[in-house]
Structures are given as C-alpha cells and as structure tokens.
C-alpha cells in the first residue's frame, strides 16, 4: 500500500469492485502501560495502569480502556474506507475480553455484505481485535458507503 506522506489513500482501499470475503489488512499495537496510563487515556482509573489496584479488583493485570481498541479498529477502517469512514458510517464494538498490559493486539476485518446504494455500495465489515494467541478482545462490525 503506497501512501502520500504516510496518509491512507483518500478514497480508501475498498472500491465498488471489492468482493464479499475480502480481508482487510489490520494494524498491530502493543498494550504499553505508559500509553494505557497517559492522562488523556486511562490515568483517571487505576484499573488501566496500576497493577496493585487492578489486582484488588480481580484483574490479572491493568487493562486497556476499550476505547483504545476501538481506536485501533477505526485506524484500520480509515485505511480501507478513507474519507468514506467519516461520513454516514457506523461502528459497533463489544469488548468481550480485557486487553492486558503488554499484550500485542492485531485488528482484523472481513467484508461480509455489500448492498447496492445510489451509484455505489454500502459495505458491512465484520471486525475484531485479538491477541497473539488468537483470543478475541473486541468484536463488532462497521458499515460505510463506497462511491455512493
């Protein structure tokens, strides 16, 4: 995927010809404790960065805010839908398991539906984020219009 200045292509990688079953290329991130506990993200809740408090509340380790996982999935979707992910799009996420500090998370997506709309299509993509063992942490789906 060649980009300009590191930006995704404005129209995205998914076009009207993209078939159902197409697999999106995800992003991979490490759940770094320093980022999980940064002021804008998790500092207000020690479950997100303090091993002592997390253990007291029954957690094996500090857990990422779910919204960090949504941000990772959103980055993947912007890469593939480009500007189309900012207009009349939908994103549904369920945090089915906690992302623990130091886990490496990769996002995934598969085009599941493609419905005619206007001059183009509305795509529905199953999305999820999982750790290196393949354990799903966040599951959901997105919808976006392409060439409508």
């Amino acid at each position: 995927m060649e980009t300009s200045n590191g930006a995704p292509p404005a129209p995205g990688l998914i076009t009207r010809e993209t078939p159902v079953g197409y697999e999106l290329i995800g992003v991979t991130k490490k759940a770094a404790i320093q980022l999980m506990g940064s002021r804008l993200w998790g500092r207000f809740n020690p479950n997100h960065w303090d091993p002592v408090y997390a253990a007291e509340t029954g957690l094996k380790a500090p857990i990422q805010t779910g919204e960090m996982s949504s941000a990772y999935l959103s980055e993947m979707c912007v890469n593939h839908f480009g500007r189309n992910f900012f207009v009349n799009a939908r994103m549904v996420c369920k945090y089915v398991a906690a992302t623990l500090a130091n886990e490496v998370i990769t996002t995934h997506g598969i085009v599941r539906e493609k419905a005619p709309k206007g001059d183009g299509f509305r795509f529905k993509v199953e999305i999820w984020a999982e750790n290196e063992a393949g354990e799903k942490k966040t599951v959901g789906w997105v919808e976006a219009d392409v060439e409508v």
């Binding site: 500007r83 900012f86 009349n88």
Partner: peptide, 17 residues
C-alpha cells in the same frame, strides 16, 4: 470519578467529519 467501572459496548453513527 467512579473508578473500577468498565466500558463494555458502543454503537456509533459517524455522521460528519
């Protein structure tokens, strides 16, 4: 803040940039 609470789900409509 109610520390110890956890966000579990969102269904978001992104309408305009």
């Amino acid at each position: 803040f109610a520390i110890g609470s956890i966000h579990t789900f969102h269904d978001s409509e992104i309408i305009e940039p």
